[in-house]
Amino acid sequence: MKFNKRPFVITALILLLFALNTFGPYNVLTALTANNLAEYPELQQELEGKIVDIDYKGRGTYQVITDSKDYIIVEIHSQESVVKYKVYELSRGVEIYKNPM
């Protein structure tokens, strides 16, 4: 009897990707729907200018770029069914190169 490895490998890969998406710091589904933040009028009132881009950084953190300033938005989970956001103005960004060695 010949054992076909292809279905086993595909199933293992799907389970691995699901586990990484669920338990890892970066949620792919949230990254794909990050632009939905622009639809909240309460959030738009907190920001100065029109939203140009929203970039998901991981763990409920978003970088929002408007035409006048940049912001960091952090999603705060509360005990209620309401999701709260804290908005921070990004005064400057720092890029650090980390050597993997």
Rank of each mutant, 00 (worst) to 15 (best):
E75G: 01
R59L: 15
F23D: 00
G49Y: 01
E46S: 13
F23V: 03
R92M: 06
D55V: 15
Q44A: 13
K69I: 07
P7F: 03
A31R: 03
D70N: 14
K50C: 00
R59Y: 12
L16R: 04
L17D: 01
T33G: 12
L15N: 12
K50L: 04
I76W: 04
T66C: 06
K50W: 00
I65A: 14
N35H: 05
N27K: 13
Q79V: 06
V9F: 10
P100H: 05
L43F: 04
Y85R: 04
N99V: 02
D55E: 14
T22S: 13
G49M: 01
N27W: 04
V82H: 12
L16D: 03
Y62K: 01
P100L: 07
V64I: 15
K84V: 07
L32F: 09
I73H: 00
L29I: 07
V64K: 00
E46L: 15
K5M: 10
R59N: 15
Y40C: 05
T11A: 15
A34Q: 12
Q45P: 00
S68Q: 14
P25T: 06
P100Q: 08
N99E: 13
Q44V: 12
L16N: 06
Q45E: 14
K5V: 12
A12V: 06
N36K: 09
G60W: 08
K2A: 06
L17H: 02
Q44G: 04
L37C: 01
E46M: 14
N35R: 07
N21I: 09
R59K: 14
I76V: 15
T11M: 10
V87G: 11
T33E: 08
T33V: 02
E39L: 08
E80N: 15
L43T: 06
K98F: 03
G58A: 10
D70Y: 04
L17E: 01
N27Q: 09
Y97K: 11
H77A: 11
V94C: 03
V94A: 09
N35V: 00
S68N: 11
